[in-house]
Every structure is written in structure tokens, then in C-alpha cells.
Nucleic acid binder design. Sequence first.
DNA 1: TATCCACAGGAAATCAGGGTGT
DNA 2: ACACCCTGATTTCCTGTGGATA
Length: 434
Amino acid sequence: MLKNNNSYQFNIDKFYKNYLKGPRIFNNRDALESSYIPDDLPHRDSQIKSIAEKTACALLGDTPPSFLCYGMTGTGKTATIRYVSQKLAQQNSEIKPWWIYINCNIVSTPYRILAHIYNTISRKEKIPPTGLPKDIIFKRLLGLLDSKIGNSICFLVLDEIDILVGKKGGNEILYDLTRLNENLDNCKSSIIGISNKLKFRENLDPRILSSLGEEHIVFPSYDASELRDILIKRAKIAYQENILKEEVIPLCAALAAKNHGDARKALQLLRKAGELAERGQNIIVTAKHVEKAQEELENDHIKEYIKGMPLQAQLILASIYLISRFSPEHIIISGDIYDVHSEIRGLIPGIRELTKRRISDYINELSLAGIISAEVKSMGHYGRTKIIKLDVAMELIGNVILEINKFQGIMNYKPAFLQADKVKLKNNIFKKLI
DNA sequence: TATCCACAGGAAATCAGGGTGT
DNA sequence: ACACCCTGATTTCCTGTGGATA
């Protein structure tokens, strides 16, 4: 934030000096990152065992079966796979399997998945980010696998595989990957799919399902006491001694347990609480810090999400914001958003008008993200539409929108749409209907 | 009870922008 | 220069529909 007046200036040198002099809270804060793989994973013995059993034959050069892992977010799916792969690599065997991780949420298209696999294996020549036909890459990949990996095994871990299946071309690429072995001479491959949706199998091509194996490993959600065990172990690594008040860990565990036992959430809470204590130059982390952390994490998450949305989606949200701000009583329906959007987008250069169809999709996305709620309702002669409500504090949204440079001008713009008599009249009828 | 509104939401086509190899 | 590739955002075209109203 820039300050126009010079009455206060942040003294960065002094800040660092104080920081280094101040109390030490963390010992190794990386241990609270979700990417951190601890030496042991509490309450995941049976999953570790099944994965180890399935993958062990790779050490002898046999083809391991492909399989799927299910579980809600923060149930340790990815961590467990990484853990087992580490252990497998440490074994005294001639064959060292390759592990290639693909997060289908990030590497999200067939082309990019093939390119990612290729580029991970190949040190020298790389597949360009776009331009080539897929079948050419596929052939090149086959050659590379055989030559570079030789007689070893290549595990392809497809994280968030459900996202891939939901997209066009997703089934095709999966099918190609499951059939890799038929086209390989030396090397063998095996697919490990990770998903947090059980239902995604319904959209899966049956041929893929059969080769991925009907058997799958389920990661149940952690309960509060299990979360506590996890946190205690991590806290020992992450924090200095005697920094956490005794109620801190149970509280983090309890809060995360409410959230379907999300360990990632629990770890985030624990870290954020520490960071808040650190920021406030406190020597001890208390329940207060955890509560504050809970609040901030929620807001941070929403803020990040909104900032990461495409400009048009942000403008849709801004439209909803403006309606609820200037006309709190107004019942917002899809058509209103369309009208307001087309009104305010004219105020911002370089943004074009969208169709109702497109806006409908954006509304769904915002709803899925939990920022708004949208309920399809029939208003009889007034048609079928969606009733939309903001699920997040207006203030928060206002703050985020304010940070979007292009939107500076519209923050206080009262849409003319709201003032039309026709609109007011119709809205009064809607109020009675609901 | 038939009608009809204002959309919902699926499928396919289109467009622009980033590339390739020849 | 040319033909062709992949992707993401969007448009076009479309069929479906709950329930107040005439």
C-alpha cells in the first residue's frame, strides 16, 4: 500500500533488526507445509501397506497393477504416495522405478500431460509447450520410455484425475496412457490415479476403469484425535520447545475435524497461528491466535480465489456486489446480473459484452467456489431463473475488487438498471413469490 | 388445464492466440 | 509462406422446464 502523506514511513531496517532480535517461534516451518513428507504418517498404515504391496513387484521388474486412491481433501493421499515412492527408492534393488507426478488441475490438457511426462524424463530435448500433433508426441514418448527407462518401471501418478475426466479429451488420453504397456518393448508403466470424488468413475470410459482396476484404496477422513496425533508430530519439528499452549493443538484439530477432517487445513491453522504470534512478537501461541488464524485463512482463501479469477468473472462478481450494495432488498436473478454486467462493462475499456449463456456458466463457477449461492427457482409466468445471494461478507468483496486496477472506477457506480421502474415493480412481485 | 415466460444447461462450432515443421 | 496443431474463451443452436396466470 502506498501512502500519500509522509507522516508515517515504514522503517524496513529497523523492522528486520527487531525481527531478528525478537522471540523465535519456529524451528522449521516447512514441516507444516502440505508438501512436507514426514518420516512417518500416523493412521495411514493400512493404506501404506496396500500401496506397498501393489508396487513392490516393480523392484523385481514386473509390471505393477494400476489403481486408484480416493479420499476427501487433506486425507493424506498424495503424501502417502510420495512417502511410499521414497521408501521404494531407498530399497536395495537393481531396478529403480521412475515416478512422475502430474497434477491434472495444473497440467490440465492431453497435450500438456504427454509433454510433461516427456519433459520430466528427458533432460536434453524438450517438447515445446504447443504446436505439435498429439500422436507425434505419443510416439516420441514411447521411444523415450523404452530408451531412457529401459527395463525399469514408470509410475504415472495422476493427481486430481477427476478433473481430467471431466474435460473433453480426458478419457482419450487416459485410455492411451492405460494402453502404454501394449506399445512398449522394454519399459513398463503403471498408473496411479488420485481423486477426491468417488463419483467421477461414472464418467469414466469402462475400458479405462477395467485397466485401472476395480480395486481402489480409500483414505477415510481423519477424526479429531487422529488429527491431534498428526499435529503433535509436526509441531515437534516445526516449533521451538514450549511455544504452543496446550490447548492450541486440540483446537486446531477440532476446527479441522469439523471440516471433514482435513489435515491440510489443520496444518495451515497451526502454521498461521504461529505466524500471527510471531507477527505480534508473542512468545507463546495461544487459542486466540488459532481463532484469528481460522478467520484469516478463510478470508485469504477467498481473496486469493477472486484475485485468480478471469477478469470477466470478476466483473460478474462486481455486478452482484453493486446490486447488493446499492439495493440490499433487491432479489438478484441471472437476468439482473446480465443487465448490470452489460451496463458496467462499458465503463471499462477492453471488456466485451457476454452472452447470457456465458454469464450463466460464470454464475455456476462462483457458486461452486462458495462465494455466492445460486438456487434455480421457477417464478411461474415470470420464468425460470436462479436466485443469487452473496455468501461472503460484502466488505471483503469490496476490498478485493478495489485492488483490481481496472475496476477502480466502478466501485461506487450505482447501476442505472436498478432505478428503472419496471425493474423495481418486477422485483416487488418476486418478493411476494418467494 | 393449457399456456408461456425467462431462463437452465448440453453439444458443437467458432475465434484468436500461441505454436510447429517444411 | 503455408498448412496444420492445441487450447481456452466464447458464441450459436438447441431442447427442457416449474408453476403463476388466463
